[in-house]
């Protein structure tokens, strides 16, 4: 089920985004040419010189701000490490990605990394890589394959964990309260992995205490407009609500507007917890309109570099590596905001 990372990149890839991707690629290609293959002159560590390592990375596309940040961070991390990165953009098409991986195999790169567009249909090409002796690392999205030896490691977020972190904050925030806490949940796109897992993790934690009641749970499709419209309706039919848990920042931002329109103060009259920590969300958090954000970070470049180095050095790596992610309170947001890049 793990198909999508980052709430914004909602699972149902909208038809238009495909075309958009094509259009955006032209612009992206210009920036890429400056990055790839840069800086082989830095000192390196490990048995094989970092300057000699070549990594092929097959990205999904450029469908969202989250993804763009993800791409930029990976390119930055490899450049900083002095490792040559061959980058390709699949425009959300599996066939493009398979082509890219095959070309990396013929080029005899040291490691192949990619974010699979879809879960299935990878066995053949991964087998080819394995036969050619090239290790594969998955980032951000998993593949659905019986044979776990086809890849070295999977680096990505744990959406259930994100839901749990949100739940834990809620439990702590209302630790002293004995009266029931009414919660509205704004779900992501129905059926999307992040939406399912974030709801599951959250429910698991707050379910321990009966005072927490999810009085309504509806999908806002990961969009700001959706979040606003759902919140408007649910606030009217549930006037006593204490807290809104949104599966991403955008829906949380929509909820803020609905709360303000109802003549209440977001963050005080009704508290808001969200997931993602994109810049708009962080700004609202710093302004006190959101109370807590669980990070879902696209910045996994440095971790990927570490894994690549270890794999090349022949060291063992974990089969499943969770992206380093944190959480932000309002105070932390004020500090972190100036450096926030995405």
């Amino acid at each position: 089920m793990r198909r999508v990372n980052g709430a914004r990149s909602g699972t149902t890839r909208k038809h238009a985004a495909r075309v958009a991707g094509i259009a955006a690629v032209a612009a992206l290609a210009v920036t890429l040419s400056g990055c790839a293959g840069g800086g082989g002159d830095q000192a390196a560590s490990g048995p094989k010189d970092a300057g000699d390592i070549v990594v092929g990375f097959a990205q999904v596309g450029a469908e969202s701000g989250w993804r763009t940040a993800n791409t930029k961070d990976i390119q930055r991390a490899f450049k900083d490490a002095g490792i040559e990165l061959k980058f390709s953009d699949a425009q959300q098409k599996q066939e493009n990605q398979i082509k890219a991986i095959r070309s990396y195999i013929t080029q005899q790169v040291d490691v192949i990394a990619f974010s699979p567009v879809v879960e299935t249909g990878w066995d053949a090409v991964l087998k080819e890589a394995k036969d050619a002796g090239i290790p594969v690392v998955l980032t951000d999205r998993a593949v659905d394959s019986e044979d776990e030896t086809l890849y070295e490691s999977f680096l990505g977020s744990d959406f259930i964990e994100e839901g749990k972190k949100a739940g834990q904050w809620v439990v702590e925030e209302y630790a002293d309260q004995t009266e029931p806490v009414e919660i509205i949940q704004l779900e992501g796109t129905t059926g999307a992995a992040p939406a399912i897992d974030r709801a599951e993790g959250f429910a698991e934690v707050i379910g321990a205490d009966e005072k927490f009641q999810v009085v309504a749970s509806q999908t806002g499709d990961f969009t700001r407009a959706g979040g606003k419209q759902v919140a408007e309706a649910l606030l009217k039919s549930n006037p006593g609500v204490d807290l809104i848990y949104a599966h991403n920042d955008d829906m949380g931002l929509g909820a803020i507007e609905a709360i303000e329109a109802a003549g209440m103060v977001p963050g005080q009259d009704i508290k808001i917890v969200t997931v993602d920590a994109v810049k708009d969300g962080m700004t609202a958090l710093a302004e006190g309109k959101i109370n807590f954000i669980v990070e879902c970070s696209p910045l996994l470049g440095d971790q990927l570099v570490d894994i690549v180095k270890k794999v090349v050095a022949g060291e063992d790596v974990e089969k499943r590596i969770i992206t380093e992610e944190t959480t932000f309170t309002q105070e932390q947001a004020v500090e972190a905001l100036p450096e926030r890049q995405y």
Binding site: R8, A16, I22, A24, S64, G65, R224
Partner: peptide, 12 residues
Amino acid sequence: RGVAMLITEGQI
């Protein structure tokens, strides 16, 4: 939509 994406550079 592609045109809109170009205008926003893929960002919100």
